[in-house]
Computed example of a mutant assay.
Amino acid sequence: MSKLTENKGKYTRRDALKLGLSAAAVASVAPLLMSSRTAQAAEVTTLTVADVGGPYGTGFSKAFYKPFEEATGIKIINTVLGPDPVPQFQMMVDTKNYLFDVALLNPEHLVRLNKLGKPYLEDINVTVPDPENYVKGSITKQFGGVSIFALALGYRLDAFSGDKTPKNWVDFWNTEKFKGRRGLWRSPICTLEVALMADGVDPKHLYPLDVDRAFRSLDKIRKSIDVWWTGGAQATQLLQSGELDMLSIWSSRAQTAIDAGTPAAIAWDQGLYNIDGFTIPHGSPKVEAARKFIQFCMDAKRQSVFTEDLACGPTNVKAYDFIDKKKATLLPTAPDHIGQLALLGADYWGENQLALTERFEKWVMS
């Protein structure tokens, strides 16, 4: 087999010159190379997109996956990421075994991946005509933010009502006034921030975290924590079943329970918000189709659609022009809510997650 045939679709002008072809010969081969690349792009019939499952898969399917299939003919295969996608992402790129072509990550994941000493992310090459309409940090060189979520305090209305409902983490820590079964996320991320706010730290001045103070605050509540939940679906079930009366929970997961008829509510004060965005693994053989998909997802009207199933806020605030006014009041980026939320420190967690996860697990198990 000739070198040209063997590397079909990857052959370049420089390769031709190395093989000693004349300039005229290179010119004659060039149309074939372009034809090969066009054919290669045309051969992309599927894209595997990894998100975190649950209502994300449902909402994104309606907003992005199915409309993209209809617009391009490229079928979206939806899969679910692991609890920590960074090791999975790293192994996939290192072995060139691409389990997915696009992945939903958070900014702190990108910080961690970009610290690893070699490229793990492709540039997404996304441009928008109205960047002023996107929440700050939503679109970067490697990240196309599409939704905003929050960790807040969820509680049962059959356990707390009237003026005796918990409003924030200070109330959650007050086990005398607010009795009931409690749960927290088994992760240092958010949980250390929650502990500091319960101890009186201003949400605007959380970072860098006073870690020792956070663990001292957790020491005060640990005997009252009945469940350390590990996944969003579990948190929904704990609230829905009534096993817990109050817990830290992703607002989208709490809203899923509320929409299903659970007598529950969300306290937004002292909550934390973060951004979900699509990324592309470095070296992906479907990088151009992946870029086309991410660009597709930046549209305001398309982002409005996922709010029918997923209680996350769109990153493109013009999406609110298409969202039911009543529904809009349930989202983290609603004006009455976003002012009560603090932005999760992506740079801090990108630098400190591994070490603090080890310390946190030792504390939980001690």
Rank of each mutant, 00 (worst) to 15 (best):
R182T: 08
F143G: 02
A159P: 04
A198S: 08
G180N: 13
L151N: 13
T140S: 14
G200K: 05
A198D: 01
R181T: 12
E176Y: 12
F143A: 01
V201R: 03
N174R: 05
L196H: 02
M197R: 02
I139F: 10
Y134E: 07
F149K: 05
I189Q: 10
S187F: 02
K167M: 15
K136Y: 14
Q142S: 09
Y134T: 04
N174T: 11
L196Q: 00
F172N: 05
A152S: 15
V146N: 02
G137W: 13
L196W: 04
R181L: 13
P188L: 02
S138F: 05
P203M: 05
S161D: 14
K141I: 07
D171M: 06
K136W: 14
K136C: 06
G183T: 06
G154R: 05
G137Y: 10
I139D: 01
W173T: 06
V194N: 03
V170A: 15
E176T: 15
R181Y: 13
K204D: 15
D171H: 14
F143D: 02
L184V: 03
D171F: 14
W173K: 09
T140A: 08
K141E: 14
M197L: 07
G200Y: 10
M197S: 04
A159I: 04
M197Q: 11
G162R: 05
L157V: 12
G162L: 03
L184Y: 04
F160T: 01
G183C: 11
L151D: 15
N174D: 15
F178W: 13
L153F: 10
V201L: 02
G144L: 09
Y134S: 07
K167P: 12
R181Q: 12
R182I: 07
F172A: 02
G144M: 05
F172E: 04
R182V: 11
I189E: 12
A159S: 14
F160I: 01
K164S: 09
P166N: 07
F172T: 03
A152N: 09
L192D: 00
R181C: 06
G137A: 07
F143T: 03
L206F: 03
L153V: 05
V201K: 04
D202V: 08
F178Y: 15
G200W: 07
T175Y: 13
K164F: 08
A150T: 03
I139R: 00
G180P: 10
V201G: 01
G180I: 06
K141M: 07
S161L: 05
K204Q: 14
V201A: 02
A150E: 01
A150C: 10
D158F: 08
K179M: 14
N174V: 07
D202I: 11
D202N: 13
G154I: 06
L192V: 02
L157R: 13
W173E: 04
F178Q: 08
T191A: 00
R182F: 10
V194G: 00
H205K: 14
W173R: 04
V146F: 11
L151R: 11
A159M: 07
D171P: 13
Y134F: 15
L153D: 03
P188I: 02
F172V: 07
F149G: 15
F178D: 10
G180E: 09
A150M: 01
P203N: 05
L153K: 04
G137Q: 08
P166Q: 09
E176Q: 15
